[in-house]
Design a protein around this nucleic acid. Structure first.
Lengths: 201, 201
DNA sequence: GTAGAACGTGAGCAAGTATTCATAATAAGC
DNA sequence: GCTTATTATGAATACTTGCTCACGTTCTAC
């Protein structure tokens, strides 16, 4: 951030710019999102963008920061409700929460996912992995008889990526091969089966 | 293809252009790949690109056609060897084959995967799904006692996407969280467990 | 050998877009 | 009210890049 906004006015501009970035990406796609579009939608001029962001990338980065933060909060909110349930219920609940999270801004998240290489999209996955690792670590402690995973980080890595990308792929298909419920059932089956596999000896 | 090459000379130019496209994408990334770069690397001038391809997209499309074709052949070659084995061995073999296939051009495939939205990358996945569906259909026929999946297309969809994207994600990590062998073991565990789950009543 | 077709060339055009900067408007401090 | 700091403006700049086209070269058929 090139200049730190000190007045209320400018803080609102920064907020409007980030929001406008989200909307423009959702509507036109990342590639077709220009600084002029963003400024116009935010109701300010291009110059204002460069008052607060060194370049376009920083602006998108700020948007991602906000989304990563939202994600973390969403997971944390849903977490305590799940820990008493069994593994299958937990996984199903996480999937449901995931769909709900993406639900509002499907277009935006799809577009961001399509451009996952543009650096920071990775932070999204890592944040998610970190939170899920915590969930399953706690579960494993409570149910050490049923679940004993040797390498939790790797297991979480596999499950997280499998879930996220399969769902994204499902969402971006022109016509779905099955209902959303069926997809969640199958993913739950796969993930829960995998995580539960190794009973302690 | 704007003009059909009739002389040997021009056929070589077309081939060189496609090859140069692959190399340039692998080296500089799709976004930084310009028609001028491709032409230079192919040892011809930009104009020649437009003798045979209407635009840059068609050129990349031709490259993808070639790769999809390669993929189909690779799967078909490996297929007969696997059908006698058990499910776990088959999945492990497919993963091994997958890594081998990508192995030579890791950079290229990663870069193409990063830009999966640019149309035709989807064809890649569908081709793979189609082939895998055939593999598991045949396996299910032979081992109808052990495996009876109600909705094979959906199961294959889930497994294929999970495997492909987890591997791609693994490959694009700056530092791997586990060895390639471990990853394959875990993926095998998850996929085979999932596919084998429902025994016939 | 030569005419005509196929092919190759690369400077330059057209279009788009990130970024700057001189200038103007607004708010804060006194 | 006046001064200074902060914020906003948007035309102009600088740069990239896909693509064209008038011209030169190579091949083929007769």
């Amino acid at each position: 951030m090139r200049r730190k906004p000190s007045q209320e006015r400018s803080r609102q501009v920064v907020e409007a710019l980030i929001e406008a970035t989200a909307q423009t990406i959702a509507q036109r796609g990342l590639a077709q999102t220009t600084t002029n579009h963003i400024a116009a939608r935010a109701g300010v001029s291009v110059g204002s963008v460069y008052q607060y962001f060194g370049n376009k990338e920083e602006l998108v980065g700020a948007l991602l920061d906000k989304l990563v933060n939202d994600l973390g909060q969403a997971v944390d909110r849903g977490l305590p409700l799940l820990l008493d349930a069994d593994l299958r219920t937990i996984v199903r609940g996480l999937l449901q929460a995931g769909f709900a999270f993406v639900g509002g801004n499907e277009k935006l998240y799809l577009e961001l996912a399509r451009n996952w290489d543009q650096l920071s999209t990775q932070r999204f996955l890592r944040t998610l992995e970190r939170h899920l690792q915590e969930v399953f670590r706690l579960y494993a402690l409570r149910h050490y008889r049923e679940m004993h995973i040797e390498n939790l980080p790797v297991a979480v890595f596999v499950v997280t990526n499998s879930m996220v990308f399969t769902i994204l792929q499902y969402l971006s298909l022109p016509q779905a091969p099955c209902t959303r419920e069926t997809l969640m059932d199958e993913l739950t089956e796969m993930a829960a089966g995998y995580l539960q596999r190794r009973a302690a000896p």
